[in-house]
Amino acid sequence: MFSHQELLIIDTVARLGSFAAAANELNRVPSAISYSVKSIERKLAVTLFKRLHRKVELTSAGTYFVEQSRLILKQMTEIKFQTQRVANGWQSSVSIALDNVVREASVNQLVHDFYAQFPEVELLLTMEVFNGVWDALADNRADIAIGATAAIPIGGNISYRAMGSLSWDFVVSANHPLASVDKPLTEEELIQYPCICLEDSSRTLPKRVTWLLDNQRRLVVPNWHSAEQCFIAGLGVGLMPSHRSAPLIAAGTLIEKTLLTPYQDSSCCLAWHKNNENPAISWLLEYLGDSDKLHAQWLNSAS
């Protein structure tokens, strides 16, 4: 209904209180300013300004119109600015899906460093479990995935960088009945107790579990913090990432046990969309570093 120029004229007249002063600021003649204001008033069928001897004052309707006009002018400027940024490869937000196995301290440092570099870009973090990380990438809910485990279960335009192997410890509480068993545990001994495991957060891809015997009861928890509390309380048995279990084993809170069939390490990786790189994503990929740095900062308890 109104052009940017018309809204700007109304704003300038209201701010300066004079057609002549507005004309001088906008490099127009006063008659052109007066004509534009009258044209807008005709469109609205209301009077925006009281015409006095050498100045103008806003009516109540004019005050409301100017307030709304300024919001629209600000939004139009922001749209122009953001559109130019997008055209130059920028985006207003970057989303990262983190597998729940990664070190929490590294997440905090990443957020701190990212906002120091990109104060105007939003960082959207989600914590996923197992195939939920790949699901977030496949569904375009994430630009980058950190700590994705197992083989890539999705096709398409995905690049990845190895993060090394994630090792697991089979643990029980120091007070658990199996804690004193001084030999590799058999399935007959293990199946008596619930397996503490995380629920895969995938929405569309097949869900998976780390370790579970046939017909064994599960104790399903949402994250590794909850799992730790259940292990410590002796509510079940199961595998825990070594970088999380190591401090608890060292403190004597948990006991590492040996299985007849040892569980293999899991390959982890950093993954991202090949054709979705922009300055913020490129910075993140460089910041996260090579495979050795990724493993040290995100999966290694000693770092």
Rank of each mutant, 00 (worst) to 15 (best):
G164F: 07
S165P: 06
L166K: 01
S167F: 01
S167M: 03
S167D: 04
W168C: 01
W168N: 00
F170E: 00
F170Q: 01
V171T: 11
V171M: 12
V171P: 12
S173W: 04
A174N: 14
N175E: 09
N175G: 13
P177L: 05
L178H: 05
A179Q: 14
S180E: 15
S180W: 14
V181S: 12
K183M: 13
P184F: 15
P184Q: 13
L185D: 06
T186S: 15
E189D: 06
L190S: 03
L190F: 10
I191Y: 00
I191G: 05
I191M: 04
Q192A: 12
Y193V: 00
P194S: 04
C195Y: 00
C195D: 00
I196A: 03
L198Q: 02
E199R: 06
S202W: 03
S202R: 02
R203L: 13
R203A: 12
K207T: 05
K207S: 11
R208T: 11
V209E: 01
V209R: 00
D214S: 10
Q216V: 06
Q216K: 09
R218P: 02
L219R: 05
L219F: 10
L219T: 01
V220K: 02
V220Y: 00
V221C: 06
P222N: 01
P222Q: 05
W224I: 11
S226R: 05
A227Y: 00
E228W: 12
Q229G: 13
I232H: 03
A233K: 09
A233P: 07
G234W: 05
G236I: 04
V237L: 02
G238W: 01
L239R: 00
P241C: 06
S242P: 06
S242Q: 10
H243F: 09
S245A: 13
S245T: 07
A246W: 04
P247H: 07
P247L: 15
A251D: 15
G252F: 09
L254E: 13
K257I: 11
T258N: 11
Y263H: 07
S266F: 00
L270A: 09
W272L: 05
N276K: 12
N276L: 03
N278M: 04
P279Y: 11
A280K: 07
S282V: 08
W283Q: 09
W283S: 12
